[in-house]
Design a protein around this nucleic acid. Sequence first.
DNA 1: CACAGTCGTTTCGGACCCGTATCATTCTGG
DNA 2: CCAGAATGATACGGGTCCGAAACGACTGTG
Lengths: 114, 114
Amino acid sequence: MSVALTTSQALRLWHDVALSMVKDDEPDLSVRQISILLTIYLEAPPHTVRDLAKKLGVSKPVITRALDSMGKLELVSRRRDEKDRRNVLIQRTVKGALYLERLADTIGNFSRNI
Amino acid sequence: MSVALTTSQALRLWHDVALSMVKDDEPDLSVRQISILLTIYLEAPPHTVRDLAKKLGVSKPVITRALDSMGKLELVSRRRDEKDRRNVLIQRTVKGALYLERLADTIGNFSRNI
DNA sequence: CACAGTCGTTTCGGACCCGTATCATTCTGG
DNA sequence: CCAGAATGATACGGGTCCGAAACGACTGTG
């Protein structure tokens, strides 16, 4: 399947999806938070704070804070690594999976209308 | 051209683009700011604060503040409407056009690799 | 068993953003 | 001409986030 988007199609898609995220009742996630969430769900575990900070090119406190706020929303959860108790393993949750499923549907639907 | 994305493709595309926005040197725009910017550039003028607030489903101060911060970055500019001096017309700028052009390139490039 | 290194968290001062309410300016209709 | 509506900006109290630095818990190596 060919998916390459023209400039105008790409911006229109981004606009539509961003708009539906804003108009949504759920609290807006920042681009950083979405990046973290998607990394956790798309890439193979385990995920640690340090790894995520490196992947995103941001400092560790940024990851800690993002996990705090997304943890409150139950989009991710944390667990100590029992093998090496310095590590914290970031884990997926049902709510997080549903959130991304809805996001994917939104993107998919708008892409279908191009 | 067929552009419909599968769930997995949509999330992977969003992940890649969000990640490149985060790793970018430029200051991150919020999802709301990006929505406003894209609305200004994709939809036909004139754009007023009130119209944008209605389109995004947010309060007017949200728009005013977003225009303040994006104005500092020179991504948009404001001008009084001389026909009705209560209105403020939001206008495009060269920097704003370049910003979106880069964003479109990023999206387009990643979409090509699906 | 001390100690340097690693990891995630916390603290700090400052900046930004939120929603609600209110304000000043400008227009409009009687 | 004036009361009221419309428009965008601002004040306020509260929350979140930032980067840099310091901190506590933990590991493993000598």
